[in-house]
Amino acid sequence: MPSLVESLQELERDLRYTPVRIAAHSDIPFAVFRYSPSEEFSLRKHLRLLAINLEKDCSRSVHFISLARIAWETAERYGLDDLFRTEKLRGFDAAQRHLGQLLSSEDFKPAEQSILVKLASLDPDRDCAFLVRAGGFAPAILRTSTLLGALENRTRVPIVLFYPGHLEYGTDLRFYDLPSQGGLGAYSYRVKIYGGGA
Results as ranks from 00 to 15, higher is better:
M1C: 14
P2L: 13
S3A: 09
S3D: 11
L4V: 10
V5L: 05
E6D: 12
S7K: 03
Q9H: 10
E10K: 06
L11E: 03
E12N: 01
D14I: 00
L15H: 06
Y17T: 06
Y17N: 10
T18D: 08
A23R: 02
A23Q: 04
H25E: 12
H25C: 03
H25A: 11
S26R: 12
D27Q: 11
I28W: 12
P29A: 02
P29Y: 02
F30N: 01
F30P: 00
A31R: 03
A31L: 03
R34L: 15
Y35P: 11
S36R: 13
S38N: 07
E39N: 12
E39M: 08
R44F: 13
H46L: 15
H46I: 02
H46E: 15
L47H: 09
R48I: 12
L49N: 12
A51G: 07
N53S: 12
D57Y: 06
S59E: 14
S59Q: 13
V62R: 01
H63M: 01
S66D: 04
R69Q: 15
R69V: 14
I70N: 06
A71V: 04
R77S: 14
R77A: 15
Y78T: 01
L80S: 01
D81F: 01
D82E: 08
D82N: 08
E87F: 00
R90W: 00
F92I: 07
G100K: 09
L102I: 11
L103A: 03
S104H: 12
S104F: 13
D107Q: 13
A111H: 04
A111Q: 05
A111P: 06
Q113K: 11
V117S: 09
A120S: 15
S121D: 11
P124N: 05
D125C: 12
R126E: 13
D127F: 06
D127Y: 06
C128G: 12
L131R: 02
V132S: 03
A134W: 00
F137G: 02
A138Y: 12
A138H: 10
P139T: 03
A140L: 08
L142H: 05
R143P: 01
S145Y: 04
L147Q: 07
G149H: 09
G149Y: 04
A150H: 10
L151E: 07
N153H: 14
R156Q: 13
V157Y: 08
V157W: 07
I159H: 07
I159K: 05
L161N: 09
F162E: 02
G165Y: 11
H166F: 14
L167P: 14
L167N: 07
Y169S: 15
G170A: 09
D172M: 04
D177P: 00
L178R: 10
S180N: 09
G183P: 00
G185F: 04
A186V: 10
Y187R: 15
Y187K: 13
S188Y: 06
K192H: 11
Y194C: 03
G195Q: 07
G196V: 00
G196C: 02
G197M: 01
A198V: 03
